[in-house]
């Protein structure tokens, strides 16, 4: 009897160990992809700065990061690339889109989590989840087919001739539409998990539901809401396909004009990628490197702010 027990137990331990090792290998494998991707981008992206690019000359790091023209001189024959203005417009566009998507997203989440009746909330929740899973190219097609037209006609009404609607404004609208579902889903979870005792305490002290929702619930959930904003910024910074369909492909000059054409780091990487070669191809990896650094820095800064503001504990 006891012999059977021992073999059973050792068999159990064996299976446990086996599963443990197997999962560990898988986890290591998926984690190692970041090194693989990182090193490929790094090696390709550093080539333009380290070699003479088949006689075109080395790309200077400082001019690359500060310049105001994507490429001076003919493609495939010049090494005078720069992304300075693109870094700034990228951040500018993401900031503007967050200005729209953040309040809309968070307030939608508040409604779904706290105010809407159960059935309505369920319905809205699934709609937002569907929105979050729509591929970016669909947003892009919507933008090219609809937003461009609206922005073009609106700008005509105010007496400005926009360039077919291709503008900062269209880009911002598309990015806001894309990030609202992300922000809503994540902040809804944060709002729902606010400690019920806090809310009851507030109500017991005589605060109205609206006061409680805005002053207690949102404050208590701010750490989670901030995470939502960070994810939204991440999605907006990395978006290429949809943006390239409405941005207009600006190649030089920093412009903050809402109705002027624009470009971001990602759209510049994407445009012409398929037909490119040599330095013009490698430089896109360098832009990718810059984009990764920009994303890392923004995430770091946002996390820093989050730690500063999000003191209240949220379960």
């Amino acid at each position: 009897m006891s012999r059977i027990n021992t073999t059973l137990r050792s068999k159990k331990i064996l299976i446990d160990q086996f599963a443990h090792q197997g999962l560990k290998t898988l986890a290591l494998l998926s984690a190692s992809f970041i090194f693989l991707i990182g090193s490929v981008i790094l090696v390709k992206g550093l080539t333009p700065f380290l070699t003479d690019n088949d006689g075109l000359g080395r790309v200077g790091l400082i001019p690359f990061l500060t310049g105001n023209v994507w490429l001076i001189g003919p493609t495939f024959q010049s090494s005078l690339y720069s992304v300075g203005f693109l870094i700034i417009t990228t951040l500018y566009i993401v900031f503007l889109s967050l200005l729209i998507s953040f309040p809309v997203g968070v307030l939608t989440a508040l409604f779904i989590a706290k105010i809407a009746p159960k059935k309505l909330a369920e319905c809205f929740r699934s709609v937002v989840e569907i929105l979050a899973s729509i591929p970016s190219i669909i947003y892009g097609l919507f933008g090219a087919g609809f937003i461009l037209k609206i922005v073009y006609q609106m700008s005509q009404l105010v007496g400005v001739q926009s360039k077919g609607g291709n503008s900062v404004l269209s880009t911002v609208i598309i990015l806001a539409l894309m990030t609202i579902p992300t922000i809503t889903t994540v902040s809804e979870v944060a709002i729902r998990s606010v400690d019920q005792r806090l809310i009851e305490g507030s109500l017991a002290l005589g605060a109205s539901f609206t006061q409680t929702n805005f002053k207690v619930v949102l404050t208590a959930a701010k750490s989670g809401i901030f995470t939502a904003a960070i994810l939204g910024v991440g999605r907006a910074l990395g978006e290429a396909t949809a943006v390239s369909l409405v941005a207009g492909g600006r190649r030089s000059g920093l412009s903050f004009d809402l109705l002027d054409t624009t470009a971001t780091l990602t759209t510049t990487m994407l445009e012409g990628m398929k037909e490119s070669q040599g330095l013009d191809y490698n430089i896109r990896f360098s832009v990718g490197m810059v984009l990764l650094v920009v994303i890392l820095i923004t995430n770091f800064l946002l996390n820093l702010i989050k730690r500063k503001v999000g003191k209240i504990h949220v379960k």
Binding site: V69, W70, L148, K149, G165, S252
Partner: peptide, 25 residues
Amino acid sequence: KQDDLLVSGFLIKDNTAILNAMTID
């Protein structure tokens, strides 16, 4: 092969997007 010779404020689009733009602009 050189963008800086073109009129300032031009737009870069691909074949289909240019076709689509001419229905709007």
